[in-house]
């Protein structure tokens, strides 16, 4: 049995294999998973909003841009090489829609775009993006193998 470490909302964790990082009940938020397949270290961030820019501030782990920076810094301090890093992400759903009203700001989509953009900026390939839809996701990330296990309540379960 792998040790399981829980990543809360607006939180990030790093670990060395064999460890599973878990975040439960992702809605419009996104779980960003990054790992170095050679060193078998990795991390996960549970971000809630696209950017710290113009925000009310507070915890930097809330935002895609600042959370990714924190995550990468910590993974680097564990010896990981930036050029080997690989990323996967899941979440970014739109849980509610009001009849007759177009969804104004789809925060889930905006989150997914922001994560993609930030990863590109840091030159980290995004291997998997399981985003969108109107359902919640619970994810487990194996920092050793890079396997991302995605569970939903009524929309199946998969490993990507």
């Amino acid at each position: 049995m792998n040790e399981v470490i829980t990543v809360g909302m607006a939180d990030f964790k790093t670990a060395t294999a064999p460890v599973l990082l878990l975040t439960a009940g992702l809605g419009s938020c996104i779980g960003i998973c990054v790992h170095d397949p050679f060193l078998k270290v990795g991390g996960m961030a549970h971000i809630m909003l696209p950017t710290a820019n113009g925000s009310l501030g507070g915890n930097p782990a809330k935002y895609a841009d600042t959370a990714l920076e924190l995550l990468l810094k910590e993974i680097a301090s564990m010896g990981a090489n930036r050029s080997r890093l690989r990323a996967k992400m899941a979440g970014g759903a739109q849980m509610f829609s009001f009849p007759g009203k177009p969804p104004v700001l789809k925060i889930g989509d905006r989150n997914a775009e922001a994560v993609e953009k930030e990863l590109k900026k840091h030159g980290i390939p995004l291997l998997v993006a399981d985003v969108g839809g109107s359902f919640g996701r619970t994810i487990h990330f194996n920092v050793g193998t890079g396997d991302l296990h995605i569970r939903t309540i009524n929309h199946g379960e998969k490993v990507v």
Binding site: M9, L26, G27, S28, A93, M95, F96, I153
Partner: peptide
Amino acid sequence: DMIGASLEAILLEEG
């Protein structure tokens, strides 16, 4: 659906 997913979507709706 998952309660956490629903509640976070409500709270974060306006970004």
